[in-house]
Simulated assay, not measured.
Amino acid sequence: MNRRLVLASVAVVLLLATSGCLGFFGDNEIPEGRLDGNVSGEYEWNADADVHINISEQATYQAVYRFEGEELRLYRNDGLGSENPLYVEAVRYRYPNGSVINGTTLVARGGTIEERRDAVVVTPPADAPSDEAGQLAFTGQSSPKQFSLPTFVKGSYEIVLPEDRRLDVPILSGTTPNTDRRSEIDGRVHLYWDDVERDVISVQYYLQRDLYIFGGIVGISAIVALVGGLYYRRQIEKLRRQRQELGLDVDVSDDSDRGPPPGMR
């Protein structure tokens, strides 16, 4: 019995170790092709916000983070209290002077991009000024009609929604935390936060055509409810007539005033 228990314990430990849960084989190198992949469009280096996130129609996003410090941890929460490394590709670093390098060049110049057990950890290149903030940009994967990420950097945020996406109907959309202001530029909604202190920032939005679908569903539901109500009322009336025809509708409301039957007085 003890031998079986020991073997089972060893098997569990090996399973956790190989899956990275104990940190033993948890660090992985991001493939060079993914690290230096092509960027769809251009990263928005010159945005006023500390963090600029551009969401595309293909459920991907381009993020630019301004950060000053030893490292930047990129992760996602799995809903069970654990952190997992964030999927990143097409990594770029921009020096304060404006020059841009790719991920492998960042590593070659003394920086790091390590996919650890719980996060992707990025440190700036060794020749980056220590008293000025650089910028890190990457492409990630999102969900259709919903975007959510931890706030790796505290400060101002700007999120740009895909074309024809809206947040005007509370039932179908919303932001956490609430935005400080919004604008529409070239058919795309821009959301602004002056200073985000929350641990997570999230946006739920909808396509304009979703309003027609939602309105159609509400209209059909109302018609079904109305028809069902009329049918139910007709059935009640029909049942009442049948009871009257059978003499089952006898008014017994005044029986208490008539006293006991003859012979029982």
Results as ranks from 00 to 15, higher is better:
residue 2 N to S: 10
residue 2 N to T: 12
residue 2 N to K: 14
residue 4 R to W: 06
residue 8 A to I: 02
residue 10 V to C: 14
residue 11 A to N: 00
residue 11 A to G: 01
residue 13 V to K: 03
residue 14 L to A: 15
residue 14 L to F: 01
residue 14 L to G: 08
residue 18 T to R: 10
residue 20 G to M: 02
residue 20 G to K: 08
residue 20 G to F: 01
residue 22 L to G: 04
residue 27 D to M: 14
residue 27 D to W: 10
residue 27 D to H: 07
residue 29 E to H: 14
residue 32 E to Y: 08
residue 33 G to K: 15
residue 35 L to W: 04
residue 36 D to L: 06
residue 43 Y to T: 11
residue 43 Y to R: 03
residue 45 W to P: 02
residue 49 A to V: 10
residue 51 V to A: 07
residue 52 H to Q: 11
residue 52 H to G: 09
residue 56 S to V: 02
residue 58 Q to M: 13
residue 58 Q to V: 04
residue 60 T to Y: 02
residue 63 A to H: 04
residue 65 Y to E: 13
residue 67 F to A: 10
residue 71 E to V: 05
residue 71 E to D: 14
residue 72 L to C: 02
residue 74 L to F: 07
residue 75 Y to A: 01
residue 76 R to Q: 13
residue 77 N to E: 04
residue 78 D to I: 10
residue 78 D to G: 09
residue 79 G to V: 08
residue 84 N to Q: 13
residue 84 N to E: 11
residue 85 P to I: 04
residue 85 P to K: 05
residue 92 R to D: 00
residue 92 R to G: 02
residue 95 Y to G: 00
residue 95 Y to H: 00
residue 96 P to Q: 01
residue 99 S to H: 15
residue 100 V to N: 10
residue 103 G to K: 02
residue 104 T to K: 00
residue 104 T to C: 03
residue 108 A to W: 03
residue 110 G to K: 00
residue 113 I to Q: 07
residue 113 I to M: 09
residue 113 I to V: 15
residue 114 E to Y: 08
residue 116 R to A: 02
residue 118 D to V: 09
residue 120 V to P: 01
residue 120 V to R: 10
residue 120 V to K: 05
residue 121 V to G: 05
residue 126 A to C: 09
residue 128 A to K: 01
residue 128 A to V: 02
residue 130 S to Q: 09
residue 133 A to Q: 01
residue 136 L to K: 09
residue 136 L to C: 08
residue 138 F to V: 09
residue 139 T to S: 11
residue 140 G to Q: 12
residue 141 Q to P: 05
residue 145 K to C: 07
residue 149 L to C: 05
residue 154 K to G: 14
residue 155 G to R: 06
residue 155 G to Q: 12
residue 156 S to V: 06
residue 156 S to M: 09
residue 158 E to F: 11
residue 158 E to Q: 15
residue 160 V to Y: 01
residue 160 V to R: 03
residue 161 L to E: 05
residue 163 E to A: 13
residue 164 D to H: 06
residue 165 R to H: 04
residue 165 R to G: 00
residue 167 L to R: 12
residue 168 D to Y: 06
residue 169 V to W: 04
residue 171 I to A: 10
residue 173 S to D: 04
residue 176 T to K: 07
residue 178 N to P: 13
residue 180 D to V: 05
residue 182 R to D: 08
residue 182 R to W: 00
residue 186 D to E: 14
residue 188 R to W: 06
residue 188 R to D: 04
residue 188 R to V: 04
residue 189 V to S: 10
residue 190 H to A: 03
residue 193 W to G: 03
residue 194 D to G: 12
residue 198 R to W: 12
residue 202 S to V: 06
residue 202 S to Y: 01
residue 206 Y to E: 00
residue 209 R to L: 06
residue 211 L to G: 13
residue 211 L to T: 07
residue 211 L to C: 01
residue 212 Y to N: 14
residue 213 I to W: 01
residue 214 F to S: 07
residue 215 G to T: 07
residue 216 G to V: 12
residue 216 G to W: 05
residue 217 I to A: 11
residue 218 V to Y: 14
residue 218 V to K: 11
residue 222 A to K: 01
residue 222 A to L: 13
residue 224 V to F: 15
residue 225 A to G: 08
residue 230 L to G: 03
residue 232 Y to P: 06
residue 233 R to F: 12
residue 234 R to I: 06
residue 242 Q to E: 15
residue 242 Q to K: 12
residue 243 R to H: 13
residue 244 Q to I: 12
residue 244 Q to N: 06
residue 246 L to D: 14
residue 247 G to S: 07
residue 254 D to R: 04
residue 254 D to I: 05
residue 256 S to N: 14
residue 256 S to I: 13
residue 261 P to M: 14
residue 262 P to T: 12
residue 264 M to F: 14
residue 265 R to C: 06
